[in-house]
């Protein structure tokens, strides 16, 4: 039983860390209608910032600041926010598929920068020895992971609470207004470009935060962690859970990550050993099938959008 609990804690750390990135994407896509196909890039910025700020000194690579975990988290959000500001200025006049292509290209570029800028990122060798704060707070892997899960839940909880407040605020309703009809929103004196930029930056900061949490937990970061498949995974989580709903975003993160990982477990359990090596293809088919079925049965995701009106309005 201990083993199962220990695994579930580990599972939830990864799933909820991804969940924070899904919350960020939900703000962008669910509430504002921004098609950000560059999620992996912003997770990478957050992860590398954490690794550089808190990591030990390294030969020929920037580092040695050994700052506390919290500084790493804040730094990761600031860095990804700055990255998003620059990207946003350049791309947010684009819409829909054009924005998707532009952000996708940026994520690939960020990954290539990580791969090649050795002084900053260690290049393909990655950065080792990133401290995990739970190692100082508890002894034994189970207790340490439990502490780390606590950290992730607290941070994820704050992010969730803040987003719930935000989307119910006038600013949140403005996001939806812009998503639904930009012209109408502009005619009421709102500035769609500015609001979209704000939403984009805030969402990317959450992705950076997720990257920082994952990096400190794993203790290692390398460019191969930020291939476009990560963006696809985060998107799947949002679509399955239900966009424009923060609960849906978190639920989607846990369920999709669960399917993704448990399908491997099921295959290693039920496929005969001789054809196990072909199990990988089966796993991909299984995941694809579940996605398609969800989209057919629940096109708006498991939990759809909630209606938000001002609490001052009388219905």
């Amino acid at each position: 039983m201990i083993g199962l609990i220990s695994y579930l804690i580990f599972f939830l750390i990864l799933a909820l860390s991804f969940g924070i990135a899904v919350l960020g994407l939900n703000l962008q896509w669910g509430y504002t209608g921004l098609f950000n196909a560059g999620v992996a890039g912003f997770i990478a910025i957050g992860g590398y910032t954490m690794a550089i700020l808190t990591g030990p000194s390294r030969d020929a690579v920037l580092g040695g600041f050994e700052m506390p975990f919290v500084v790493g988290l804040i730094g990761a959000m600031i860095a990804s926010g700055i990255g998003a500001y620059i990207v946003g200025l350049a791309t947010l006049r684009l819409k829909g598929e054009y924005l998707a292509v532009a952000t996708f290209g940026i994520a690939v570029s960020i990954q290539l920068v990580c791969l090649n800028w050795e002084y900053l990122t260690g290049g393909t060798l990655g950065l080792i020895g990133i401290p995990n704060p739970s190692k100082d707070l508890a002894t034994g892997p189970l207790a340490q992971n439990a502490v780390y899960l606590g950290i992730v839940i607290v941070i994820g909880g704050i992010a969730f609470w803040a987003l719930e407040r935000i989307v119910k605020s006038p600013w949140g309703r403005m996001l939806k207004a812009i998503r639904e009809d930009e012209g109408a929103a502009a005619s009421l004196g709102k500035s769609p470009v500015r609001v979209r930029l704000e939403s984009f930056i805030l969402g990317c900061m959450l992705m950076g935060l997720a990257g920082a949490l994952l990096t400190a937990f794993i203790g290692y970061i390398s460019p191969s962690d930020f291939l476009p498949i990560v963006t696809f995974q985060i998107w799947t989580m949002l679509i399955v859970g239900g966009s424009a709903n923060n609960r849906g975003a978190l639920l989607g993160a846990v369920l999709v990550w669960g399917v993704w990982t448990s399908s491997g477990f099921v295959i290693s359990k039920f496929i005969p050993a001789e054809i196990q090596a072909q199990g990988g293809a089966l796993q991909a088919i299984l995941i694809g099938l579940i996605l398609v079925v969800t989209l057919l049965m629940r096109p708006r995701g498991l939990i759809g959008e909630e209606k938000h009106v001002s609490r001052h309005a009388s219905l």
Binding site: L14, S268, G280
Partner: peptide, 26 residues
């Protein structure tokens, strides 16, 4: 018994697979 888990070449999947082998399969 040889218990194989696929990493799909992705670090997060690989880490999860390893953890599940250790904790659940023992």
């Amino acid at each position: 018994k040889y218990v194989l888990r696929d990493t799909q070449g992705q670090s997060t999947i690989g880490v999860d697979a390893a953890k599940s082998l250790v904790d659940i399969e023992g």
